[in-house]
Simulated scan of single mutants.
Amino acid sequence: MANILLERTVPLPLDEAWRRITEWRRHGEGVPLTRVGQFPSEPTRVGTLVVARSGVGPLSFDDPMEVTVWEPPEDGAPGMCRLEKRGRVVLGWAELEVRPGPGGRTRVVWREEIRIRLLPSLLDGVVRRSARYVFGRALNRLLRQA
C-alpha cells in the first residue's frame, strides 16, 4: 500500500474550504480522464457512494468509495470525512480534514492509503509519487476555484 499526505493552508473559512473539497463531481475536473458521480446525488452523508470512473473506453474502471465518516465543521470546530474504497481495482481509504490554521486561515489535510489490486508492492513508490502529484494538483484546483 502507498500512503500519501497532502497539507495546504488557505485563506478560506473552514466551511468554504470544506465545501470546496467535498464537491465530489469537481474532483474529476482535476484528475485526468476521470469523471466523478455521487449516489444519492445530495446531500452527502454516511453511506453516500462516490464513484470515480477513470480511463478511456474499454480501458476504464470504477473506483467506488463509501462515505463512512461525515463530520462537517461546526462553530469553528474541525471537519472530517472518511471514504473507504470499495472497488475491484483500487483499494484503501481517504480522509479529508479541515481545521483552524495560523492567522485565521484554514489547514486542509488529505490522507490516503491506496493499493492497486494485482500491482506488486515493489511499485508502491511509483503509486505514491503518482498519487501525490495527481491528487495534489486536484486539491490545489479545488481550493483555488469557488
Rank of each mutant, 00 (worst) to 15 (best):
M1F: 05
M1Y: 12
I4H: 07
L5K: 14
E7T: 14
E7P: 05
E7S: 13
R8W: 10
V10E: 10
P11L: 06
P13I: 12
P13D: 14
P13K: 10
P13T: 11
P13S: 15
D15M: 10
E16F: 08
A17E: 11
I21R: 00
I21K: 02
T22S: 12
E23V: 05
H27Q: 05
H27V: 09
G28R: 06
G30Q: 12
V31Y: 04
L33G: 01
R35N: 09
R35T: 15
V36F: 00
Q38W: 03
F39A: 14
E42T: 11
T44Y: 03
R45A: 15
V46E: 15
V50Q: 01
R53Q: 07
S54K: 06
V56F: 08
L59W: 12
S60L: 03
F61E: 04
F61Q: 01
V67I: 13
W70E: 05
W70Y: 14
P72A: 09
D75Q: 15
D75G: 14
G76T: 12
G76E: 07
A77V: 03
A77S: 15
G79I: 09
M80E: 14
E84C: 02
K85A: 12
V90M: 08
V90F: 05
W93G: 02
A94M: 11
L96G: 12
V98S: 03
P102M: 07
P102E: 15
R105M: 14
V109N: 10
V109S: 01
R111S: 02
I114K: 00
I114L: 13
R117E: 06
L118M: 14
D124M: 10
D124V: 08
G125T: 10
V126L: 13
R128S: 10
R132V: 03
Y133C: 06
F135Q: 10
R137N: 13
N140P: 03
N140T: 13
L143G: 08
L143V: 03
R144V: 03
Q145R: 12
Q145D: 09
